[in-house]
Amino acid sequence: MLGPVGVDVRKAGDTGVGRYVEGLLEGLARQCCPPALVLYGRSWDRSLRTYAEARRTLYTVRSGVYSPWQHLEFWRLLHRHSPPVFHAPHFTTPLVIPRPTKLLVTIHDVAFLQRPDLTPYEYRQPWRLLAYGLALKIAAFRADLILADTQAAARQIVRQLPDAGGKVRVLNPGVDLQRLAPSGRADPISAGGPQDTLLFVGTITARKGVHELLEAFARTQARRKGTHLVLVGQNRSAYARQAIQRARQLDIARQVIFAGPLPDKQLMMCYRRARAVVEPSHLEGFGFPVVEAMAAGIPCVASAIGPLQEVTDGAALLVPPGDVPALTDAVDQVCFDAGLSQELSKKGRERAAHFSLERMGEAAMAIYREAMEL
């Protein structure tokens, strides 16, 4: 049986990395012989209850993921518990790991190094970018194994972080296919009504291509009155305020809804009411909204960047990032072409089956075993 595995779960409950952590725990719990876990996080995380009580122990970590005090606190905790493997699902890993514990670090993307100009304004100060870049390099140097979400993300990591060479393994995140299944969903291509809605899910930032999405939607809306755009995700940043202002300038403010972050139940309702999900990102490591939309049978329009090309594998319409005319044409196609929408819906469900929680848990256990043998 696989020995105890330590996992930093402080990001559970957040978007992005939080969904990764929750999916990892659920995927491991669904294995026939789930490993014992030593979890380090906040004691009030509701998401941690998904893991069988008999197979996990939770220790409270008071330090935040960006706090310098976390390094001392984790050294003390790991020295006391000595798990054979410690998995940090975020690049801000503890600086010192007591041996013989093996360190696994998930690096979801290297956006800070690839495109610092797309970093949110609030984090674009030179000292912050330097600190984030240094943290990534330290994580790559210290890790025994590095986990990437996709093969494309793995290649980006190796290009940007030379110390990652030979250490990178791919662990595709998983989603709950049963929860997202389109059973009972109304016809996604029926004209008019509440399903004449385009959906974007993600933090409202420049790297997600939100301004380009608004420009494309303005052109589509001019030809198809009654269409709405719903944006689900954090929208309190300076960039988000600019996006809201841009919607007013384009005279589409009444048709665009900045919904903010939503609980899972409401997010599932948004997926089921959407005609299409549009994710015009400039940078991604995986793309949870795209996989969730495919699992729900919703046609997708996404950027033709490596990770999204790999994840969709022909099951979505892909356009060059930043190309507003191409994005407009793709959105028009899924809005007006019923046959194409049905085809994308079918292909999407088939492709999403490759990203089940069970597969994620099985792959994670194989990587943990490999780490223990290093």
Score class of each variant (00 low, 15 high):
Leu136Met: 03
Thr150Asp: 00
Leu229Gln: 01
Gln151Gly: 10
Arg142Cys: 04
Ala148Trp: 14
Val168Phe: 06
Arg223Leu: 11
Ala143Pro: 04
Gly165Asn: 03
Asp144Val: 02
Thr227Glu: 06
Ile204Cys: 08
Phe217Arg: 09
Ile157Gly: 04
Lys167Cys: 07
Asp196Phe: 13
Arg224Gln: 08
Ile157Leu: 02
Arg207Asn: 06
Phe200Arg: 12
Pro173Asp: 07
Phe217Ser: 09
Ala153Thr: 11
Ala218Met: 07
Pro162Tyr: 12
Gly165Leu: 14
Thr150Gln: 01
Gly192Cys: 09
Gln156Glu: 08
Ala191Leu: 15
Ala216Trp: 14
Arg142Ile: 06
Ile204Asn: 01
Gly226Glu: 09
Thr150Trp: 08
Leu213Lys: 04
Gly184Ser: 05
Pro162Ile: 07
Ala181Leu: 05
Ala216Leu: 06
Ala164Met: 06
Leu229Arg: 03
Arg142His: 08
Arg185Ile: 02
Val210Gly: 07
Ile204Asp: 01
Arg223Trp: 07
Ala154Phe: 12
Arg142Met: 03
Arg219Ile: 10
Ala191Gly: 02
His211Val: 06
Arg185Phe: 14
Leu171Pro: 14
Ala191Pro: 12
Arg142Leu: 06
Pro188Gln: 07
Leu199Arg: 09
Leu177Asn: 05
Pro162Glu: 02
Thr197Asp: 03
Gly165Lys: 15
Val168Cys: 07
Lys137Met: 05
Ser183Phe: 09
Ala153Tyr: 05
His211Cys: 00
Val201Ser: 02
Ala181Pro: 11
Ala153Val: 01
Asp176Thr: 10
Ile189Trp: 15
Gly193His: 12
Asn172Val: 10
His228Pro: 02
Ile189Cys: 15
Thr205Tyr: 13
Leu180Tyr: 15
Arg207Lys: 10
Ala218Pro: 03
Gln221Val: 14
